[in-house]
Design a protein around this nucleic acid. Structure first.
Length: 123
DNA sequence: TTCCTGACTCCAG
DNA sequence: CCTGGAGCCAGGA
C-alpha cells in the first residue's frame, strides 16, 4: 500500500484522525454571528489541506460532540453550499439568521463584513 | 490496488 | 456574468 493515509497510518488515534479534530476545533471557535469559508480553514491548518477536506470533515461534524457550528462555514462566495446536508435545507439559514446573520438567496448578506478569518481571530 | 466522488477554489474562455 | 476544467486530499467500492 503506497498510499498511506493519516487515519490508517495513525489508527491508534482515539478519534477518526487529528485532521477532523483540528478542523472542528477551528470551526467551534468561530464567533457567533460570524462566518468563514472552507479555504481559510484549510489554509490555517495549512499545510496542504484542501478546501474539500474541510467540507468533507463537516459532513462528519453532525455526529461530533459537542456539535460543530457547521452553519457558520460557507464557501468563498458566502453561499450556503452545505445547506442540503443539514437535517433540513432551511436549518442552516435559520441558524444563521438566529445569530444575526442575514441570508438571502442562499447567500450571506455582507459576507465580507461577517467574514471571520481564523488566523486573525485566533491571533 | 485502481477508480470515482465530494459541504471547494482558482484560472481561462 | 456564467460555465468548464484542473488541482487538491481522503475514503469507500
Amino acid at each position: 500500500m503506497k498510499k498511506r493515509t493519516i487515519s490508517t497510518d495513525r489508527k491508534q488515534t482515539p478519534d477518526k484522525s487529528n485532521f477532523f479534530e483540528d478542523v472542528f476545533d477551528v470551526v467551534r471557535q468561530i464567533p457567533k454571528g460570524r462566518v468563514t469559508n472552507y479555504g481559510s480553514i484549510a489554509k490555517y491548518l495549512g499545510s496542504g489541506l484542501s478546501s474539500r477536506m474541510v467540507g468533507w470533515a463537516m459532513n462528519a461534524s453532525h455526529m461530533m460532540k459537542p456539535k460543530v457550528p457547521a452553519h457558520r462555514v460557507v464557501n468563498r462566495n458566502g453561499m450556503l453550499t452545505g445547506k442540503h446536508h443539514f437535517p433540513t435545507p432551511t436549518t442552516m439559514e435559520t441558524l444563521l439568521e438566529k445569530e444575526g446573520v442575514k441570508v438571502i438567496s442562499d447567500k450571506v448578506v455582507e459576507f465580507k463584513e461577517r467574514y471571520w478569518d481564523p488566523a486573525v481571530g485566533l491571533l
